[in-house]
Amino acid sequence: TRVETATETAWISLVTALHLVLGLSAVLGLLLLRWQFPAHYRRLRHALW
């Protein structure tokens, strides 16, 4: 049971790290898009909202 718990903890930390990385890359990508294509971003936002 001790090994299982350790594996579970490792998986949880791995998944958390993955989610953090994905979230950060998504935010960075959005910022980059907004910085590179302001007109396109505004049009996209206008279409979405």
Results as ranks from 00 to 15, higher is better:
T1S: 11
T1C: 12
T1L: 13
T1G: 06
R2Q: 14
R2C: 09
V3R: 00
V3T: 01
V3D: 00
V3L: 11
E4Q: 08
E4H: 11
E4V: 12
E4P: 01
T5C: 03
T5W: 00
T5L: 08
A6P: 08
A6W: 07
A6F: 10
T7Y: 08
T7E: 09
T7M: 12
E8L: 04
E8Q: 06
E8M: 04
A10H: 14
A10C: 02
W11V: 12
W11R: 04
I12M: 13
I12A: 12
I12Y: 11
I12Q: 15
S13L: 10
S13G: 10
S13P: 06
S13W: 11
L14D: 05
L14H: 06
L14R: 01
V15C: 11
T16H: 03
T16A: 12
A17L: 11
A17K: 00
A17M: 13
A17F: 09
A17E: 00
A17S: 11
L18A: 01
L18M: 15
L18S: 01
L18T: 06
H19Y: 04
H19C: 01
H19R: 01
L20F: 13
L20P: 03
L20R: 01
V21D: 00
L22A: 14
L22K: 01
L22H: 04
L22P: 03
G23A: 10
G23I: 13
L24H: 00
S25E: 01
A26P: 00
A26V: 09
V27T: 09
V27E: 03
V27N: 04
V27F: 12
V27H: 02
G29T: 15
G29C: 13
G29K: 03
G29W: 06
L30R: 02
L31N: 02
L31C: 15
L31H: 04
L32I: 08
L32H: 06
L33K: 03
L33V: 08
R34M: 07
R34Y: 05
W35S: 15
F37H: 06
F37D: 06
F37E: 03
F37A: 06
F37M: 09
P38M: 10
P38S: 12
P38N: 10
P38G: 10
P38V: 08
A39H: 14
H40F: 10
H40S: 10
H40G: 14
Y41T: 09
Y41K: 03
Y41D: 04
Y41A: 15
Y41F: 13
Y41R: 04
Y41L: 10
Y41N: 02
R42I: 09
R42S: 14
R42E: 09
R42N: 12
R43E: 06
R43I: 05
L44H: 05
L44E: 01
L44W: 08
L44D: 05
R45E: 02
R45S: 07
H46Y: 07
A47R: 12
A47K: 14
L48D: 06
L48K: 00
L48V: 09
W49P: 04
